[in-house]
Design a protein around this nucleic acid. Structure first.
Length: 579
RNA sequence: CGGGAUGUGGCCCAGUUUGGCAGGGCGCCGCGUUCGGGACGCGGAGGUCGCGAGUUCGAAUCUCGCCAUCCCGACCA
């Protein structure tokens, strides 16, 4: 491809609307343009990168035995009503109606459609197992689209669904996808961790997330450097606290005028923060409009994990209760609540509070606190749950070593669904004895456009993107310093032609621009290699080969360039290889 | 949905406080000079100042309403 005939509009200045590196660079390097919040047009360069990732995904899916299909984006409401998700999915689903007033959704995911397909086409155990996948746009009307394609409303996703006769088969299918995902992300050059995750609303039992480590990530990964335990912070546990050896001291009521926060309490008494406990009030909803006020007690310096709270309660949703709700139900002034004598809310203790002694807590009375409150003596000793958010430094639940934590981008997730959808939609098969059985399902997603963003987050510098060869839009750019010069033109044209013939993905920057413009664009777009054809080296019959990642340049004879470049590319591919 | 900010040519921004000719840089078109890290000169095109009302002799600027975009939070298969 000749850049003079290509559409790669790079921007000299930082787009005002973009914050994180991948978003800024995708706009600046001419990969995409915004059309509306969370909705983008992909230009030729961006399209090529997406296709590269798609192709890697496709190869690994096919290798794992999955079959590619194309399911509709426009999906009838009836199917979603059958599983109850027409209501459940809420405002995140784009909905529309046709000219007859029939309701449809733009697919945010495809469990309903694919299960409908399978219930109508699969009836015998002989047809199982089967795994179907597609690579296609998905639509989710996110509350807050942000960071470019990181959280978009229209995005490219690979989604796969496995169908098995029994649990064992489901585990096998799951394992196959899990391994395929590891290969995909390794080939894309991502630094990632596979973590245990909360199954959330999708209702499965077993699930892992694939997290690309990056500061801009919206998720947090906690892992143990010793034994390898790794989990999404929403799910992460830590080793249970040892029961306190302290003797219970007598309960003491202390005047604490104006003290409303844990920090103020620590400073005022004074007391160490490890002996303070706080109450967090939540409104838990269980469906059918049933709501309940919940009081969760955790150590003063801990954060509550809302996902754990939700799971402990078996609630559909929890939200922090507001001041007014709390004082109405408990009669306790906000900021002075404590577990001793608390009324009007369901009390839950974090393990750490249950195991501890002599807590400083609110007295349920303005300007008063209690010291040496003890579970079992002064307030109920249960129910006990693991409610706290764990983080860096907490002991590993498996081996006790101090864990580490980093932000991550969720680029993929694998789920075992069991029979949730097959039962709702009546997807069954007949076994060898002619008995009808529900099909066991799994579902597996990769955010393709998000993966592109994750690669950029991990691989960029102040000048631009630093693509790994596997997903770069082109592998090499040939830059004649001054294309109008006949000698340079002749060599540049020849190298461009020979590289193309050798199967290298190459662009020729034949634009009538100054060399500085072309060099800067080459760095911005991030082609892994640049071949510079300039008068200095050319006088010796040489050209320069520069590696984008290191900026290292070597000069070599024109006739050796093609072979040398093929060698370098082969070596780079070997690094990303999964063989 | 709560909080904050911003909307002026394709891009980045000034002008709004104190109402008075719609500006600069980049990019774009033409000519010339230049040519190893975002050149220079000359000439040129391009704007309902987010939209709608209102105040005023006069509104990018003041008032009211709406919309869009971005950030933080809540939310998130």
């Amino acid at each position: 491809m000749r850049l003079s005939q290509y559409l790669a509009p790079t921007l000299r200045e930082e787009p005002a609307e973009a914050e994180i590196p991948s978003h800024r660079l995708m706009l600046r390097a001419g990969l995409m343009r915004k059309v509306a919040a969370g909705i983008y047009t992909f230009l030729p360069l961006g399209t090529r990168v997406i296709q590269k990732v798609e192709q890697i995904v496709r190869e690994e899916m096919n290798r794992a035995g999955a079959l590619e299909v194309r399911l509709p984006i426009v999906q009838p409401a009836e199917l979603w009503q059958e599983t109850g998700r027409w209501e459940e999915y809420g405002p995140e689903m784009f909905r529309l109606s046709d000219r007859h007033g029939r309701l449809f959704a733009l697919g945010p995911t495809h469990e309903e459609i694919v299960t409908d397909l399978v219930r109508n086409t699969v009836s015998s155990y002989r047809q199982l197992p089967v795994t179907l996948y597609q690579i296609q746009n998905k639509y989710r009307d996110e509350v807050r689209p942000r960071f470019g394609v990181m959280r978009a409303r229209e995005f490219v996703m690979k989604d796969a669904y496995s169908f098995d006769r029994d649990e064992e088969g489901m585990h096998r299918s799951y394992r196959a996808m899990y391994e395929a995902y590891e290969r995909v992300f390794r080939r894309c050059g991502l630094e990632f961790r596979v973590v245990e995750a909360d199954s959330g609303a999708i209702g499965g039992s077993y699930t892992h997330e694939f997290m690309a480590l990056a500061e801009s990530g919206e998720a947090e990964v906690v892992w143990c450097p010793r034994c390898g335990y790794a989990a999404d912070v929403e799910k992460a546990e830590c080793a249970p606290p040892a029961p306190s050896a302290e003797a219970m001291r007598p309960l003491e009521r202390v005047a604490t005028p104006g003290v409303r926060t844990i920090q103020a309490l620590v400073d005022f008494l004074p007391i160490d923060v490890e002996h303070t406990a706080k109450i967090l009030f939540y409104a838990a909803s269980y469906g059918g409009g049933r709501e309940e006020l919940v009081a969760a007690v955790v150590r003063g310096d801990r954060m509550l994990n809302e996902v754990k709270l939700k799971n402990a309660l078996g609630a559909l949703q929890v939200r922090m209760a507001d001041q007014e709700e709390v004082s109405r139900a408990t009669g306790a002034p906000f900021g002075s609540a404590g577990p001793v004598g608390l009324k009007g809310a369901r009390l839950l203790l974090d393990r750490e509070v249950a195991a501890g002694r002599n807590w400083a807590v609110g007295a349920n009375e303005e300007d008063w606190h209690l010291r040496n409150a003890n579970p079992g003596r002064d307030f109920p000793s249960g129910p006990i749950h693991d409610l706290r958010l764990v983080g860096a430094g907490d002991p590993c639940p498996r081996c006790g070593a101090a864990m580490e934590s980093r932000a991550g981008i969720e680029v993929g997730q694998v789920f075992e669904l069991g029979t949730k959808y097959s039962e709702a939609l009546g997807a069954t098969y007949y076994d060898e004895e002619g008995r009808s059985r529900p099909i066991l399902m799994g579902c597996y997603g990769i955010g393709v456009t998000r993966t592109v963003a994750a690669v950029i987050e991990q691989r960029h510098d102040e000048a631009g993107i630093v693509w790994p060869v596997s997903v770069a839009p082109f592998e090499v750019v040939v830059v004649p310093v001054h294309y109008a010069d006949p000698a340079q033109r002749e060599v540049a044209d020849r190298l461009y032609r020979e590289l193309g013939e050798a199967g290298v993905e190459v662009v020729l920057d034949d634009r009538d621009e100054r060399s500085g413009v072309k060099f800067n664009d080459a760095d911005l777009v991030g082609y892994p290699y640049r071949v510079t054809v300039g008068p200095k080296a050319l006088a010796r019959g040489e050209v320069e080969l520069t590696r984008r990642a290191t900026r290292q340049t070597e000069s070599l004879p024109v006739e050796r360039l093609v072979a040398a470049l093929r060698e370098r590319l082969a070596a780079d591919r070997a690094v990303l290889s999964v063989e």
